[in-house]
Amino acid sequence: MAMQEQVPAEETCLICGRHEVEGIHICNQLICDSCQKKIVETEVTDWKYKYYMNKLAKLRLNLTQCTKEANVIHAGTGGEAGKH
């Protein structure tokens, strides 16, 4: 019997609302690769910066749940991450 390859389920991007498979998860919410790239490249003086910050503010709603479920990693010295 051949094993079937599992296809990752699509999720809705918190920023653009598109159904995507690839991206990062913050507090169990997806930010697609495209939006992640746009956020990182946006200057704080650009009008889009405020738009992205308003979208990211939705993450605060689940902050309590997120901290309970996440394995918190704190940044160490020299850019290395250390687990506490």
Rank of each mutant, 00 (worst) to 15 (best):
M1A: 06
Q4A: 04
E5P: 00
Q6S: 02
Q6G: 00
E10G: 15
E11P: 02
T12F: 05
T12A: 09
L14T: 01
I15F: 00
I15P: 03
I15L: 13
C16G: 02
G17E: 04
G17Q: 11
G17R: 06
R18M: 07
H19R: 15
V21G: 00
G23P: 00
G23S: 04
I24Q: 04
I24S: 01
I24W: 01
I26L: 12
C27G: 13
N28C: 11
N28L: 14
I31R: 00
C32Q: 00
C32F: 02
S34I: 07
C35Q: 01
C35F: 00
C35S: 01
Q36L: 12
I39G: 10
V40Y: 03
E41Y: 00
E41V: 02
E43M: 09
E43T: 13
V44Y: 06
T45L: 07
D46V: 13
W47F: 10
Y49R: 09
Y51N: 07
Y51D: 09
Y51F: 15
Y52R: 01
M53C: 05
K55T: 02
K55Q: 07
A57G: 07
L61W: 03
L61R: 06
L63W: 08
L63E: 09
L63K: 11
L63H: 08
T64F: 08
Q65C: 11
T67C: 14
K68M: 07
K68G: 10
K68W: 04
A70H: 10
N71D: 14
I73Q: 15
I73M: 14
I73C: 11
H74K: 12
A75F: 12
A75Y: 09
G76E: 02
E80A: 10
H84N: 14
H84M: 10
H84L: 15
H84F: 15
